[in-house]
Simulated assay, not measured.
Amino acid sequence: MAETFLYLTLGTGDLPRAARFYDAALAPLGLVRRATEETEVGYGLPGDGTTRLWITLPFDGRPATPGNGTMPALLAPSRAAVADFHAAALAHGGSDEGAPGLRPYGPGFFAAYVRDPDGNKLSAVHLDRP
Rank of each mutant, 00 (worst) to 15 (best):
A89K: 14
A2L: 14
M1K: 07
R129T: 11
G11K: 06
H92D: 04
P16D: 00
A19F: 00
T65C: 12
A88P: 06
T36V: 13
L8I: 10
G69D: 13
H126N: 12
T51S: 04
R62S: 12
F109S: 09
L6R: 09
P63T: 07
G49I: 13
E40T: 11
S123F: 05
L90Q: 04
G98Y: 06
P100C: 06
D128T: 10
D14K: 02
R52W: 11
A124H: 03
V125I: 14
F59V: 09
V125E: 02
A124Q: 01
S95Q: 05
S78N: 05
D60I: 07
A89L: 15
S95T: 12
N120F: 00
G11N: 03
S95M: 11
G94K: 05
E97P: 12
S123G: 07
L74W: 04
T51R: 03
L74R: 03
D14P: 04
L102N: 15
L53D: 00
A81C: 04
A2G: 15
L75T: 09
T50Q: 15
A83E: 10
F109W: 13
T50C: 10
A99C: 09
P104R: 07
L15A: 03
L75V: 11
A89Q: 01
A80V: 08
G13Q: 03
G44W: 05
